[in-house]
Design a protein around this nucleic acid. Structure first.
Lengths: 356, 356
DNA sequence: GCTTAAATTGTGTGCGCAAACAATTAACCT
DNA sequence: AGGTTAATTGTTTGCGCACACAATTTAAGC
């Protein structure tokens, strides 16, 4: 027959105390005698108690505030996708008392980050989602949040030992390696020069991009063939005057056979440039299924995309926070999303499949 | 402020009747006078009432039976993975009164399917998950289940207009095309013969395999190059005496450059054979992250896998049924999972990422 | 000893809903 | 009209839990 789940009531009965005491033990609120504690714990050890989460959320009619500390979605479609994931999670949990409060900072301005992070500490939320893209600037705030007792999860970039509840993202070194493999495959046996292209103001402060490059280079180093020569190009903001000059110079090189772009926005900026300027056979590999990138992939300008799933990252991040706050679940220290390969032939299958 | 959700109580108050009456209207259980009905309906039109699903499942302490009509997991690791997804879903919902009852049939025996399906109708469940791998044999049962009022979802193979609640799986034609693209890429500019390999007793009755082959062939036809010649090989059960002979004959052909296997079990059977017999450079592309396939991929025998995510398919299938039964959610007519490309460089990222 | 405070326990209420149940009203029949 | 049944309504209970509160026990102080 239907083995009904153990309830708090049952535990109380088994250990010869009242439900109140069991409740205090389960949530270690204290106010329990040694004696009673021991009795309940022994029962708890034998019985696999799984609280009825449905009843739990009904019973405690709380309101939770979750703050999200991420780049302004208007500045970059990648972060717009991220925001979409946040919104979706909020929709799901709103009626159960979860409120998401956005704290956007300027993607290109460290000071803006500090400022906004400060505002968060001013009015401490119950939970926090952070995209720590400024390495040095974020570090001190981790401590602040910890001392304030605010649980936080990281997305996009992992910073080990940051005391975070969990990290949601990808292994960026492997991501770079995969870029290497795809580039290698695309070359059809040819050889020549390859370029790694970053589009970022401050590369030294951006662990995530450096990791990708390392992976890409090491893939070819381990191949131990001299067929390819890898170089790096550091592009400034597209509004910068030298932007197009730099790219022109890159295309000059006749032996250039492929470009690996480390950011999603950079990917379509590069594609746009390639489309507008004559060049030999140059394979282009970049990141993420932004609308623009999808377009260029269908046109044949982009050969492969590695999907970082920003929307899913943010969605899962919020979910983990909710799980931690409401359902008292233990979030995994890190949730590494798979490195999804997007090509002309499977892109539609991804577009149709919900979370994109 | 927190805009609290409208409750049944509020609706009752607004329309001047009791909660009991509102309840009867909401679930149209009848026993309501014209007059009262009208009053409640007008309020319901103005107010966007969204029942608190958490409270609902708590309040109604029902037990639901979900039957799963799928191949015996012991016969094929693919279906073992599928079963794992079912188990995971059951674990999640068990304590909320959902029971999953397995009805396994013999993967290689149509009659076994009929027999088992018959047993399902004998003791009708509240919901049903079906893997309709025998096309002709399944059709009549769809009608039976419909007339019995049992909602059912399909996994693995889509049968349009089957009256199913929803289908969970992939577009198999596109899957074949993707196989073609990956094969093309792997060839590094070479040319020669390619083989599509099926491992199935009754190909004519298996839409899913035929669709994959069609996709694979059309990819190369549209390339309009004569670099490749595609042939088909139909393998019988591995226990069959001619099994290894057939494969030996295949390898004889010196121009053979690649093999595309349409099933997951066939993939590692082929890999095993390739490993044990000398051959030129033959690229191998197949399906799914079975343990055996993972091993051969890491060894370098398999070049690419297309992940069909059997576990996830089944998991989502059960979830949709539960959503339909308990939460009264509308399941999407079809949930097409993305065609995931697995290579040596991203396989670990997939292995680490939960659902595998 | 008694009184008071502190520590520990047990009990009760409400969350929003479904469903069993009790109460009321209307309809029908001799 | 009175009695009976059916149709319609309203009230109550319980789901499992969290949390406030009341009750009890123990310790401390005099």
């Amino acid at each position: 027959m239907h083995a009904k789940n153990v309830r708090i009531k049952d535990i109380a009965q088994l250990s010869g105390v009242s439900v109140g005491t069991v409740d205090r033990v389960l949530h270690n609120r204290g106010r329990v005698s040694e004696d009673a504690l021991k009795k309940v714990l022994t029962v708890l050890e034998q019985i696999d108690y799984k609280p009825n989460l449905i009843a739990r959320t009904l019973g405690s009619n709380k309101v939770y505030r979750i703050a999200v500390l991420v780049p302004d979605p208007h500045q970059d479609p990648y972060w717009a996708a991220s925001k979409a994931g946040i919104d979706e999670a909020e929709m799901e949990w709103h009626r159960y008392g979860v409120h998401v409060v956005p704290y956007f900072f300027n993607l290109y301005d460290k000071n803006s980050f500090r400022e906004v992070a400060e505002r968060v500490t001013q009015n401490p939320p119950d939970g926090l989602l952070i995209a720590p893209i400024f390495y040095h600037e974020t570090l001190p705030y981790f401590k602040r949040f910890q001392s304030l007792g605010i649980p936080y999860v990281l997305v996009n970039t992992n910073i080990e030992q940051a005391g975070s509840l969990s990290f949601i993202g990808q292994n960026l070194y492997e991501s770079g390696r995969l870029g290497g493999e795809l580039m290698h495959l695309s070359q059809n046996g040819a050889s020549g020069a390859l370029a790694v292209l970053h589009m970022n103001e401050d590369l030294d402060n951006s662990v995530h991009l450096a990791e990708k490059e390392r992976g890409f280079r090491e893939y070819f180093e381990q191949k131990q063939s001299n067929a390819f020569e890898v170089r790096t190009l550091n592009l400034h903001n597209p509004s910068h005057s030298t932007f197009e000059e730099q790219l022109s110079a890159l295309l000059q090189e006749s032996s250039l056979k492929g470009i690996f772009v480390s950011t999603s926005k950079g990917t379509y900026m590069m594609a746009s440039f390639l489309e507008r300027h004559p060049h030999g056979v140059i394979k282009l590999i970049g990141y993420d299924m932004l609308e623009e990138n999808i377009l260029y992939m269908k046109k044949g300008v982009i050969d492969f995309l590695i999907n970082q799933n920003p929307k899913r990252q943010a969605f899962l991040g919020i979910n983990h926070l909710v799980g931690h706050l409401i359902l008292k679940k233990v979030a995994p220290a890190q949730e590494l999303l798979p490195l999804e390969i997007i090509s002309r032939e499977n892109i539609d299958s991804y577009l149709r499949s919900g979370m994109h």
